[in-house]
Simulated assay, not measured.
Amino acid sequence: MSLLNVENLCIDIPGTRGTLHAVRGVSFHVDKGETLCIVGESGCGKSLTSHALLGLSPRIAKVQAAALSFDGTDLRKLRERDWQKLRGLRLSMIFQDPMTSLNPSFTIGALLTEVYRRHHPASAAQARDRAIEILQKVGIGNAEERLAQYPHQLSGGLRQRVMIAMGLICGPDLLIADEPTTALDVNIQLQILRLLQDLKRDMGLGILFVTHDLGLVARFADRVAVMYAGRIVETAPVAELFAKPCHPYTRALINCIPVPGKTQPGAPLGAIPGVVPSLIGPQQGCAFRDRCTHATPLCASRLKRQQDGGSHVYECHYTPEETAA
């Protein structure tokens, strides 16, 4: 059984212009010890999906799912009291911007020990020892001294490591990382990815990694789910996805990446024409059809789900061979 199982997740947000269908029938699973990367451009519904898994959707949002379970627990039936017991203990999240996610009024030590003592009957000294241990585990030197510092006294990379430490201090089974390397330079990004890989290996974590960077996906993922306009349009093991992308949107994303040795200096980079369609009001057919060079009238009428091998699934009426021809 999968650690996390999501089937037909829909998130609708009512507004003055109509209902925004932000997430439209999303399905995926994450196994223990596996990294699933959800990749897509800004505004496609990645963060809303990850927040729904922790019961953190906006109050105005209407969240529905055929199945939404974590290790056998039906998350749809949890009350806020139950969520507070689960969040941080077995299901944790690294938020996108540590500067706005860490309370600037509290020291690093206070933030970490509060999380630990909320879920464990530990003394202040025991919680402090655990905080030092987890800071060292995420690669922060002089851990004891860091406990007395405030978030603004740390660099961006250190703040991100503190966020990871907060997510791991109680030893969760699943870690959701919502674009945790967005504001970091390339060297720090690589350090954070290596750290998460080491922690996954040592702790047996399942990781749901949300990003818009295909370069990170290639380095870090076991499986990839490509998201566009509120839907997952393709899911595959990472090697298969890059070797044979089947959905036109996935191919377009990959074509936008410059390839060392192939992309000539000064040559124009790949781009996807058009804009993302509005998700307000009724939705039908493939949302990518207006930007797709292979679209036909059939694409506007309905969706078609196909398989390319056992675990490579995509939503398109046409195979890569047909669109190439």
Rank of each mutant, 00 (worst) to 15 (best):
L4F: 01
E7G: 05
E7H: 12
E7R: 13
I13M: 07
L20P: 11
R24T: 12
R24K: 09
S27N: 09
F28P: 08
I38A: 07
V39A: 08
G43K: 07
G43T: 06
L48R: 07
T49H: 09
H51S: 12
S57N: 04
R59A: 08
I60K: 11
A61V: 07
Q64H: 13
Q64F: 09
A65P: 04
A65W: 03
L75K: 01
R76P: 01
R79C: 10
L86V: 00
R87N: 03
M99I: 15
S101K: 02
L102P: 13
L111D: 11
L112A: 10
H119V: 14
A124T: 15
A125G: 14
A131Q: 12
I132D: 14
E133P: 08
K137F: 13
N142P: 13
E145K: 13
R146Y: 15
H152S: 12
S155H: 04
M163S: 15
I164M: 07
L168F: 13
L168P: 13
C170E: 10
P172Y: 12
P172I: 11
D173Y: 06
L175E: 10
I176H: 05
D178L: 04
T182P: 12
D185P: 14
Q197Y: 07
L199N: 10
L199T: 06
K200E: 06
G206Y: 02
F209G: 01
T211R: 02
V217A: 03
R219D: 09
F220S: 00
F220C: 00
V224L: 00
M227L: 08
I232E: 02
V233T: 09
V238F: 01
A239Y: 00
E240D: 12
Y249E: 03
I257T: 00
Q264Y: 06
P265K: 06
G270I: 07
G274Q: 05
R289M: 09
R291G: 05
S301N: 12
K304P: 05
R305D: 01
Q307L: 02
Q307E: 00
G310Y: 08
Y314K: 08
C316Q: 06
C316R: 11
C316F: 11
Y318Q: 15
E322T: 15
